[in-house]
């Protein structure tokens, strides 16, 4: 996979998730981050650090990105969410505009 096609998402704890740009852009915030005309640091390095999102949540988010790409149109399957993650996930979703 080419480096240009992927983006590295880094959690508060420093875990790095390498995902397809296409998937990451499911988030409107990340989309703007990577497409905004004057190249910001994130766009140049291909990395985004989220100091306020924990690894667990970010992992879940990455899963959601791919789930969304695959099923968004049909919505036949449910995206599994553990109840204990719900609140944090919702807040992250608001932040990422997903």
């Amino acid at each position: 996979m080419k480096k240009e096609d992927t983006v590295k998402l880094i959690s508060a704890e420093g875990f790095e998730f390498v995902v397809d740009k296409e998937a990451a852009m499911v988030s409107q915030t990340i989309h703007n981050m990577l497409t905004s005309p004057g190249s910001f640091a994130e766009r140049q390095h291909g990395e985004v650090t989220f100091p306020e999102i924990s690894t667990t949540i970010l992992e879940k988010i990455c899963q959601y990105f791919y789930w969304h790409l695959q099923f968004a149109s049909g919505k036949e399957t449910e995206f599994p969410i553990e109840p204990e993650l719900t609140l944090e996930l919702m807040m992250a979703a608001n932040y990422l505009h997903t």
Binding site: M33, S36, S39, F40, A41, E42, R43, T49, F50, E52
Partner: peptide, 20 residues
Amino acid sequence: EIYNHNASGLSFEELYRNAY
């Protein structure tokens, strides 16, 4: 910085988080 064409040093995430 943006108006001065100096945006490359800025972190979008940080600015976004601040505004947020």
